[in-house]
Design a protein around this nucleic acid. Structure first.
Ligand SMILES: Nc1ccn([C@H]2C[C@H](O)[C@@H](COP(=O)(O)OP(=O)(O)OP(=O)(O)O)O2)c(=O)n1
Ligand SMILES: [Mg+2]
Ligand SMILES: [Mg+2]
Length: 831
DNA sequence: ATCCTCCCCTAC
DNA sequence: TAAGGTAGGGGAGGAT
C-alpha cells in the first residue's frame, strides 16, 4: 500500500516509454448436506437476527419488502448503501454477498454480456424497482424492472459471476490430516499485544443491541464447541474444506521454486522459529528455511535469458511480483469460494464474545456503552495489513536481526558495477523526463534528485527491495527501492533472502483466522484485507477496537508476525487509519471525526493517487485533502474526467461508499515477462512467445475460463537507449505497443488452442524475422494471454504495418500477449 | 449517448 | 549481477 512515496526512480513503472517496465513504471448449497448442528445453529442465528431486527423497527416506515432479500451487484444508481437503507426501512433485507439460499433478488444497474447465468435462478432487477415501489407505497412487480428484459447488447466492463470451479477435481498429495490441521479451529489465545493503540475519537454511541440475546449466544457457543471437539475442521462444511484443500494444492504447485522444495527437505527446523504457530508439521506446506531459498543457482549456467531452457520457470520462481499477483488472485478466489460455500460456524466469535465480556468486566462497561452504530446504514470497516510482511516473515528464522534495518532482496548487498555500455544516470534522467513530460507546463527534471543521489561507485546494486523493516525506513529506505540507493542511505542495512513458501504459509493463517470470524472479507493482497465488521460486532456485542486487539494478538501468536489495523466508517478511512496505526498498532477513525481527520491527510495518501496524480494536484496547489476539498468539483471533473474528478472530491471529504466485496471476479488473465529478454534469433522470440502462450492457457484452464480477446503487448527498446540496461538483464528504456484482437467464438478445446497458438507463432516468426534482421540485438519482452479463441494471427494484430514495421529499427523488443474477457462457462457460445 | 481500442496509472 | 508481474479503473478520441 504505501508505494506512494515513489518519487523513487526504481519504483515507478512508468508506462510506455520509460526505463521501467512496460508500464513503467453463497448461500451455501451445502446447507442441506447433513450437518445436524448446522441447522440448529442457523435456526438460532436467524432467531437472533430476527429478534434484533425487530428491535430496530424504530426507523421502519413500511413492510413492503418483507421477505425480500436483495444482493446488489456492482455500482447502482441509488448506491448499494442507500439501497440497503431503503430496504431496511421497508422491511427488506440486504445481503452482503450472494447467498443463493437466501437472496431473492439481485439488484444491478447494468450487466456485461448475458453472462449472468444466475439470472435463471433468481431475478436481476434494476434498482428502480425498489425506488418506485417505495414511491408507490407497495411492492411492485419486479418483472418490468428485470434488467435482462430490455438488454440486448453486451456491456463489457462489468463482472459476471464466476463459473464455479469443480471442487472435486483435486488429486493432490494433501492428506486428510493436513487439511484438518489447516482448518483447525483457532485456539483461544491470551497473548498480549504490545503494539500501539490509539483511538481518534471521544465520541461513541450506545450499543443497544449488545446483550439482549445472550441466550442465543450461549446456545451457539456450546454447539460450536462440541463440534470442534468432534471435528477440527471448521464448520464441517465440505465445500469450505474443499476450498482450503485447493489452497493447499495451489500452494504446492505454486512453489515454483524447485529450490524451495529441495531446500526444505534438506533442512529441518532449526528451532529458531519453533515458537510460532500450529504444529507446522501438520501443514501440507512444509516450512522452508530461508537461507536456502533464494540462494545460488543450481547450475552455474550463464543463465537466465528468455529462450534458455527452463527460463520461464526459473524467472517466475524468483519473481516477487509474480508471487504477489498470483497470491492476490488466489486469496480473492479463496474468499469468494468461502462465501459461496457459506458457513454457519464462526468459531472466532465465541472468543470475541469472551474477550468482550472480559473487557466489560474489567472496565465496567465503559467502552461498550459507547461504541457503535445507530444509524441503520452505518458500517464499520476494518483494514488489516501485516507490517513489513516479507521482512517480518523472514525474521522468524533470523531473530538476531530484529530491531535492525533489514531488507528482503535478491542482492547480497553490493551488486556489480554496470556494464560500460549502460548508464544508470541516463536511464534515470530519461525516466524522469518521460514521467514528468506528461505534465505539461511543469518544470522539467531538475538536476540531481534523489535519483542519482547515491554513490553508484560503491553501491550499485540494482536489485529491488521488496520490503524493508521500520528501522530501515527511518533512514529513508522504502519498499521498491534499489539496493544500491538503499545502502547509501542506510550503511548498516542487512539483507535477507526471499522465502516465498513461508510468506504463503503465513498468509493462509491470516486469512483462515479472519474467516473464523466473518466472511465479509475482501482480499486485497497476501498480507492485507478489508473486513466489514458490522455483522461480527453486532453478533458479538464487541467493539471494533476489541475485535482489532483480539485479531492482532491472535495473528501475532499464530504467525509470530505483527499486523496493524485501521478502523473506519468506510474503506477509505479504514485504510488511512491503518497508515497511522503502523507499525504494530491499531487506530480508529470515527465518523464524527472523519472531517477533521481527513483535512490534513496528504492527497498522496489517498488510494489511487500515485506519482502522477500527486504531481498534477501539486500543480493546482493541492497537497492536502483539505485543499482538495476547496477545489470546485467542476474543476476536478474538467481536469481529470468525470469519474476521477468525482472520486477525488468524495475522497477529499472522507466519503467512500464502495462496499467490501469478496465476490469480485477476474476479468482478465495474462502472463508477462519483462526481464531477462535478450533474443538473438527470431526463433528464440517465437519459442518464447509460445511458452508464454502455454502459460496463459494453463492459467485459463486453472480457473476454467475461456478467452475472447487477446492483447499483445510489446516493449521495444527505445532507439536512443543503450544496448544494455543499467539493471542486469533489465529492459531499460522502452516504448510499448499494445494490440488486441477479439475472437468470434469461444472454445475450450485444448488442441484447437494449441494449434492456434502455433499458428500465431508462425505468423509472428515470419514478420519478426524480417523486422529485426540481424541477431543479437533483439531484445524481446513478452506477455501473453489467451482467452480461448484462437485464431489470432500476427496479421490480425498488426493489420497494416505488420510487425515488421512496428519493430523496424528496434534492437530490443518486448512482447506482451494479453487476453481479456472470457466466456463464462465452457459450453457457452458467443455470437 | 455509448461503444471500442489503446493507452496511462495505480496497487500489492 | 537479478529475477522490472498482473489486474482493474478510467480517460482520450474516434466509430457507431
Ligand atoms: N514494491 C513492492 C511492494 C510490496 N512488495 C511485497 C513485499 C511486502 O512485504 C508485501 C506487502 O506490501 P505492503 O505494501 O503491505 O508493504 P509491507 O508489508 O512490506 O510494509 P507495511 O508495513 O508498510 O505494510 O508486498 C514488493 O515486493 N514490492
Ligand atoms: Mg504490509
Ligand atoms: Mg499490504
Amino acid at each position: 500500500m504505501e508505494h506512494k512515496a515513489r518519487a523513487e526512480p526504481s519504483k515507478p513503472k512508468p508506462k510506455q516509454s520509460d526505463e521501467g517496465r512496460g508500464q513503467t513504471k453463497r448461500g451455501r448449497g451445502a446447507d442441506d448436506e447433513g450437518w445436524g448442528g448446522f441447522r440448529n445453529y442457523m435456526d438460532a442465528k436467524n432467531f437472533k437476527l430476527n429478534d434484533q431486527f425487530d428491535k430496530e423497527k424504530k426507523g421502519r416506515t413500511s413492510d413492503i419488502f418483507a421477505g425480500v432479500y436483495i444482493y446488489v451487484n456492482g455500482y447502482t444508481r441509488p448506491s448499494s448503501d442507500e439501497l440497503k437503507r431503503i430496504m431496511q426501512a421497508h422491511g427488506g433485507r440486504y445481503e452482503t454477498y450472494l447467498r443463493k439460499t437466501r437472496v431473492t433478488h439481485i439488484v444491478a444497474s447494468n450487466l456485461p454480456n448475458s453472462k449472468f447465468k444466475m439470472a435463471r435462478t433468481m431475478p436481476i432487477v434494476k434498482p428502480d424497482w425498489i425506488v418506485d415501489s417505495v414511491s408507490a407505497g407497495k411492492r411492485l412487480s419486479h418483472v418490468p424492472y428485470l434488467l435482462l428484459g430490455n438488454q440486448s447488447k453486451l456491456q463489457p466492463g462489468l463482472k459476471s459471476f464466476p463459473s464455479v470451479s469443480s471442487l472435486s477435481k483435486s488429486s493432490s498429495t494433501v492428506s486428510a490430516s493436513s487439511v484438518a490441521s489447516l482448518a483447525d479451529a483457532v485456539p483461544s489465545t491470551s497473548a498480549t499485544t504490545t503494539g500501539t493503540e490509539r483511538v481518534c475519537s471521544s465520541i461513541t454511541d450506545g450499543e443497544s443491541e449488545r446483550n439482549f440475546n445472550s441466550e442465543h449466544y450461549v446456545g451457539v457457543g456450546k454447539l460450536v464447541k462440541s463440534r470442534d471437539l468432534e471435528q477440527k475442521c471448521d464448520g464441517g462444511n465440505d465445500v469450505r474444506v474443499a476450498a482450503q484443500v485447493k489452497m493447499l494444492e495451489k500452494a504446492m504447485v505454486n512453489s515454483r521454486s524447485t529450490e524451495d522444495n529441495a531446500a526444505q527437505s534438506m533442512k529441518p527446523n532449526n528451532g529458531s522459529k519453533s515458537a510460532l504457530i500450529l504444529s507446522p508439521e501438520k501443514l501440507a506446506i512444509p516450512r522452508v528455511t530461508p537461507q536456502s531459498v533464494s540462494s545460488p543457482r543450481k547450475e552455474s549456467s550463464v543463465m537466465a535469458k528468455a529462450g534458455d531452457k527452463g527460463f520461464l520457470e526459473e524467472f517466475y520462481s524468483n519473481s516477487r511480483l509474480h508471487h504477489l499477483s498470483t497470491w492476490g488472485a488466489e486469496f480473492k478466489s479463496y474468499v469468494a469460494e468461502l462465501q459461496r460455500a457459506g458457513t454457519s460456524t464462526f468459531p472466532g466469535r465465541e472468543r470475541l464474545r469472551q474477550a468482550h465480556i472480559d473487557t466489560v468486566t474489567r472496565t465496567g462497561l465503559a467502552e461498550t456503552l459507547h461504541s457503535s452504530r445507530h444509524a441503520v446504514s452505518s458500517r464499520i470497516i476494518m483494514h488489516i495489513d501485516m507490517d513489513c510482511f516479507f521482512v517480518s516473515v523472514g525474521l522468524l528464522s533470523r531473530p538476531d536481526l530484529k530491531g535492525k534495518p533489514v531488507a528482503v532482496t535478491h542482492s547480497k548487498g553490493q551488486g556489480r558495477p554496470p556494464s560500460s555500455s549502460s548508464s544508470l544516470a541516463w536511464e534515470q534522467a530519461e525516466w524522469r523526463k518521460v514521467k514528468d513530460g506528461k505534465l505539461k507546463g511543469e518544470k522539467q527534471a531538475r538536476a540531481g534528485t534523489q535519483f542519482d543521489g547515491f554513490d553508484a561507485q560503491t553501491f550499485h546494486s540494482m536489485a529491488e527491495i521488496a520490503s524493508c523493516s521500520y528501522e530501515a525506513r527511518k533512514a529513508g529506505v522504502k519498499n521498491g527501492m534499489f539496493m544500491g540507493r538503499a545502502m547509501s542511505l542506510c550503511l548498516d542495512l542487512q539483507t535477507i533472502p526471499y522465502n516465498f513458501a513461508e510468506y504463503n504459509r503465513i498468509s493462509k493463517i491470516l486469512y483462515d483466522l479472519v474467516a473464523s470470524y466473518t466472511l465479509d472479507i475482501e482480499a486485497v493482497s497476501c498480507d492485507e484485507m478489508l473486513i466489514d465488521c458490522t455483522d461480527v460486532l453486532t453478533d458479538t456485542g464487541a467493539t471494533a477496537m476489541e475485535f482489532a486487539r483480539l485479531l492482532r494478538s491472535e495473528i501475532m501468536n499464530k504467525t509470530g508476525c505483527a499486523a496493524s489495523t485501521g478502523i473506519g466508517p468506510n474503506i477509505l478511512l479504514a485504510r488511512l487509519a491503518t497508515r497511522k496505526a503502523k507499525p504494530n498498532g491499531q487506530f480508529e477513525v470515527k465518523s464524527s471525526d472523519a472531517k477533521q481527520f481527513i483535512e490534513d491527510q496528504p492527497v498522496s495518501d489517498l488510494p489511487g493517487v500515485g506519482y502522477s496524480m500527486t504531481r498534477k494536484l501539486s500543480k493546482l496547489g493541492v497537497q492536502t485533502c483539505g485543499e482538495l476539498q476547496r477545489v470546485p468539483l467542476s474543476v476536478l471533473r474538467r481536469e481529470f474526467g468525470p469519474k476521477t474528478g468525482e472520486g477525488l472530491h468524495k475522497f477529499s471529504l472522507g466519503q467512500d461508499d464502495r462496499p467490501v466485496r469478496g465476490d469480485k471476479q477476474r476479468k482478465s488473465v495474462s502472463a508477462e515477462v519483462n526481464y531477462g529478454i535478450r533474443f538473438s534469433k527470431d526463433l528464440d522470440a517465437l519459442t518464447f512467445l509460445k511458452e508464454l502462450s502455454g502459460e496463459v492457457k494453463r492459467r485459463l484452464d486453472a480457473i476454467q475460463v475461456k478467452g475472447r480477446s487477446i492483447t499483445l503487448k510489446l516493449m521495444i527498446r527505445r532507439p536512443d537507449a543503450p544496448q544494455e540496461s543499467a539493471k542486469f538483464m533489465g529492459h531499460g528504456i522502452c516504448n510499448t505497443i499494445n494490440k488486441s484482437s477479439n475472437l468470434p467464438v469461444g472454445t475450450n478445446d485444448e488442441d484447437l488452442i494449441s494449434r492456434e497458438v502455433i499458428s500465431l507463432y508462425r505468423s509472428q516468426k515470419v514478420n519478426a524475422e524480417d523486422v529485426r534482421g540481424p541477431q543479437r540485438d533483439i531484445r524481446a519482452f513478452s506477455t501473453s494471454q489467451f482467452r480461448q479463441a484462437l485464431e489470432p494471427t500476427w496479421a490480425k494484430l498488426f493489420p497494416k504495418k505488420g510487425i515488421n514495421q512496428a519493430l523496424q529499427g528496434q534492437k530490443h523488443v518486448t512482447l506482451t500477449l494479453q487476453e481479456e474477457q472470457w466466456t463464462q462457462r465452457r459450453n457457452q457460445r458467443y455470437p
